[in-house]
């Protein structure tokens, strides 16, 4: 039950993108389509779960002073594993996400959860925290990607809903990312404020 609460906390109550506003670079940079957003979200989820679990296992072995560098090395190790796996098995997605895969290392969500949750809790809750936060992040990225793809090209996950001629290209380009995210945060804030 308690683990379930930890999981839901990341998914809804403290959604990393809409509420905590962490990890904005990949959020904006990789969501030109729903599938890219989903891919980035799941990649980050993998790193979050693995690094959270390992850090909660070794938290008692790390001296307090070198805490942050040690966390970064653990995270960077998993990012490298992910990078190699994606290059081998999902080359198309790897190419379209490009630079943002190695940049998961400096994603504030991963280090933030390591510092504020995994370093204080056991392995099982850390796993659920990583899962919840990761899925919350994936959900936000997929939503943002879907809205941008729909407005920009008239498709969602490559399924055409209306003709591409009516698409507004600006939403696929850089400015659209900022504008759509601004409106999504406002809408989420409004819903949260009412409930």
């Amino acid at each position: 039950m308690n683990n379930f609460k930890v999981f839901l906390n990341g998914l809804i109550k403290e959604n990393p993108t809409f509420v905590l506003l962490l990890g904005m670079c990949p959020t904006l940079g990789t969501t030109s389509s729903a599938i890219n957003g989903l891919g980035m979200g799941l990649a980050t989820t993998f790193v979050l779960i693995c690094s959270n679990m390992v850090i909660s296992l070794i938290k008692n072995l790390i001296p307090d002073k070198v805490r942050i560098p040690s966390f970064i090395v653990v995270i960077a190790a998993f990012v490298t594993i992910l990078q190699m796996c994606m290059e081998a098995y999902l080359p198309a997605l790897y190419d379209s996400l490009g630079l943002f895969i190695p940049l998961i290392v400096v994603n504030c969500i991963v280090l933030g959860r390591a510092e504020s949750f995994a370093a204080k809790n056991g392995v099982i809750p850390s796993f659920f925290d990583g899962l919840g936060m990761g899925l919350g992040f994936s959900f936000a990225l997929t939503l943002l990607g879907a809205v941008r793809e729909l407005l920009g090209t008239g498709k969602i996950f490559d399924i055409a809903l209306y003709s591409e001629d009516f698409g507004m290209l600006i939403f696929v380009l850089a400015p659209g990312a900022f504008i759509v995210l601004g409106f999504l945060i406002a809408i989420v804030g409004k819903i949260r404020g009412n409930s």
Binding site: I170, A174, P175, F178, G182, A186, I187, G189, G193
Partner: peptide, 22 residues
């Protein structure tokens, strides 16, 4: 409007700034 104050409007302004840079 209350819902737009703070971060949301900052993002939209950033979007317009990005448009200018385009």
């Amino acid at each position: 409007p209350k819902a737009m104050a703070g971060t949301p409007i900052a993002f939209i302004v950033a979007g317009i700034l990005a448009m200018a840079f385009m």
